[in-house]
């Protein structure tokens, strides 16, 4: 059993922010939570991470441990060195090797141990923030807007890391993101929030290729979906929706030939 939310409602005073949410996380998968600003994503995540209580409804975590990687890494750091930051989350404080291992996993080496996390570059800060969560060995890792401020190589490394965590370490990943092209690239399952409600959920290709539905819920479709859609309409073709540009180009090339 994984994480299950039943009839969740939430409000700040009179301001309702979530209405009747029923959701079961896809355990062992990479999940994405998408929706326009103000749709309730942040509150929903705060409820799953127990930062906030719902006004009504049931949250079942079933002993699953949850790690939350903040959008702004500086909000997460409270120690003066990377070593101290990571050691804080370590059960066995003497297990220094695990600190090195986790750093390596996020693409940093031991030369970072003595550095002040607040003095690192944006990309490095993000990596340390992820390492600080990984070291606590959670079952579910939630990433809040993880691509903000990352260059393409760092984005690719992050995707690779998430896939390793999912496939090798059997973690469940949840990505909260506005970066729809990033989500389309690699997640398995999508939850779409709109105006306080969960309006759609399902496998990525099903949800993110539904052009009309995305428009209705103020989500700009992934560029590959938009392109495929335009080509199909303009040229009266039936190209398949692909999540990789090279696959789409091969399909197009075949038609031309």
């Amino acid at each position: 059993m994984g994480v299950k939310l039943t009839n969740i409602n939430a409000a700040y005073g009179n301001n309702v922010v979530l209405e009747n949410i029923n959701l079961e996380l896809q355990m062992g998968k990479i999940n994405a939570l998408i929706g326009p600003c103000g749709s309730g994503k942040t509150t929903l995540v705060e409820i799953i991470t127990m930062f906030q209580k719902p006004t009504s409804g049931k949250v079942e975590l079933n002993d699953k441990r949850i790690g939350f990687v903040f959008e702004f890494p500086d909000q997460q750091f409270f120690k003066q060195s990377v070593f101290a930051e990571l050691q804080y989350g370590l059960k066995d404080k003497k297990n220094v090797k695990r600190i090195s291992d986790v750093l390596k996993m996020v693409g940093l080496d031991d030369s970072f141990l003595e550095k002040n996390p607040h003095h690192l570059s944006n990309g490095e800060k993000r990596k340390v923030a992820i390492a600080a969560i990984l070291i606590t060995n959670p079952d579910i890792i939630i990433f809040d807007e993880p691509t903000v401020g990352l260059d393409r190589n760092s984005k690719n490394n992050l995707i690779r890391l998430m896939k390793i965590l999912q496939q090798k370490n059997k973690k469940t990943i949840v990505v909260v993101s506005q970066d729809i092209d990033f989500v389309y690239d690699f997640v398995d399952y999508v939850y779409l929030l709109y105006d306080k409600k969960l309006v759609a959920e399902g496998p990525k290709l099903k949800i993110l290729s539904n052009y009309q539905k995305l428009k209705k819920y103020q989500i700009i479709p992934p560029k590959l979906v938009a392109l495929t859609n335009k080509i199909n309409n303009e040229k009266n073709l039936k190209l398949k929706y692909r999540d990789n540009i090279n696959d789409l180009l091969k399909d197009m090339y075949r038609y031309v030939k």
């Binding site: 938009a226 392109l227 335009k230 080509i231 540009i245 090279n246 180009l249 197009m252 031309v256």
Partner: peptide, 27 residues
């Protein structure tokens, strides 16, 4: 990036930033 790839496949001559125009130009 798409324009460059299409150019490589000889499907497009120049960089095009507008998706509608690009779709009209290919094929």
């Amino acid at each position: 990036s798409l324009s460059l790839k299409l150019r490589y496949y000889n499907l497009l001559d120049e960089i095009e930033l507008d998706m509608d125009k690009m779709v009209r130009k290919i094929w």
